[in-house]
Design a protein around this nucleic acid. Structure first.
Lengths: 199, 199
DNA sequence: GCATCTAATGAACGCGCGTTCAATTCAAGC
DNA sequence: GCTTGAATTGAACGCGCGTTCATTAGATGC
């Protein structure tokens, strides 16, 4: 049976399939793909290692599926960005990016860290999706630059800088900590806004 | 013999010791600590796996030494920051950070990615060193805030944002590419400068 | 040129890896 | 209650892992 395939009847696959993905996501994020064994994932799910191969062809496919689905979801969310001025759209991106990252920490972390563990073909696919995200951010900067509301010497560099800055939030933000998510979003947006605008 | 210990005579250790570190640094950066075997490192150096244990007590110590020495060097460089206004010091940090990162890509990468592969005691040490770096950056922001030249709602968040943004340069910068290092430093400094100053 | 001593070898240890597969379990459909 | 077929088991495969250690090689100091 193919992974993720749903059946009409109440089979084990309906329950175990997602469980495998969830366990792999959590363990890969915590210990790293290379350091996690199929037996560890199986133990987490509550089955023997062999049973995992009902839901994935191999360990590499498990990683790739998690990364691809993550990027697809990220891009899907990005595509519903409301119309508006470049400034409004950039603010939306800042808040969307932070919100998504904080609510999908494991997925974000894996997509960050495990690129190098993808086989060449898979690596190309994920890099391509990531590139599309970067392009979407840059498109807003380019628009703002052309309309004269942003002053950016290099839109590509600025896109990468903004994305890197926003990704950083996952390294230090703790829920229930000193700063609420709303406040974090507001502060980051202020920094980004000033960084792309002329003084 | 202890690793890194120098001898008066021209022993093999003088040559092989650093070679082991260099090979480990390169391989850990490229494939990740967990994915690299002691035999791989040995092959790179041109010895048998057993010989590595003349220079390191075990694989974990090899990683830890690389990470600790990296952070020590980073902090050492930071400590020679010239006096000056908060703005001047922040600019110096931006340029130092970018320059160091681009000339020590492997070390930076490992310190970024391999924290989770450190045993608890080692993890504490490296986290502590990293924390000192973050504190040094924040100290400049605090100074500028107190002097009224920066407008920063939260100096801790701003420190992390700046560091994350600067770290990002390693993910896309390629020597001989579209932008020179000097130009990259200037653009980043402009973005940071505007991000911390009032509009 | 012999004694000393360290670097390096290479075999060995037990272990866990990813993956396969025949056998078994077990719910569903009739 | 029997048949069907998918889900799961559990043993097995060959392999490479980190590390140890008796042994050898080879330069150093006298």
């Amino acid at each position: 049976m193919l992974p993720g395939m749903a059946r009409k009847t109440g089979s084990h696959a309906e329950i175990t399939g997602p469980k495998v993905r969830e366990a792999a996501l959590r363990l890969f994020a915590q210990y790293g793909y290379a350091a996690v064994s199929m037996r560890q994932i199986a133990r987490e799910v509550g089955v023997q290692a062999g049973a995992l191969y009902t839901y994935t062809t191999d360990k590499q496919a498990l990683l790739f599926d998690l990364m691809r689905d993550h990027m697809t979801e990220v891009l899907g969310g990005m595509s519903v960005m409301p119309e508006g001025s470049p400034g409004e759209r950039l603010e939306w991106i800042v808040r969307y990016h932070i919100g998504y990252n904080l609510s999908h920490k494991d997925g974000v972390f894996i997509n960050y860290m495990e690129l190098r563990n993808l086989e060449p073909e898979n690596h190309k696919v994920i890099s391509g999706l990531r590139r599309r995200y970067e392009d979407a951010v840059e498109a807003v900067l380019v628009d703002g630059q052309e309309k004269g509301v942003f002053q950016i010497p290099d839109t590509r560099l600025a896109s990468m800088a903004v994305i890197a800055m926003l990704n950083g939030v996952n390294t230090w933000y703790r829920e229930g900590g000193r700063l609420s998510q709303e406040r974090v979003e507001r502060i980051y947006w202020n920094m980004v806004r000033r960084a792309v605008k002329g003084a």
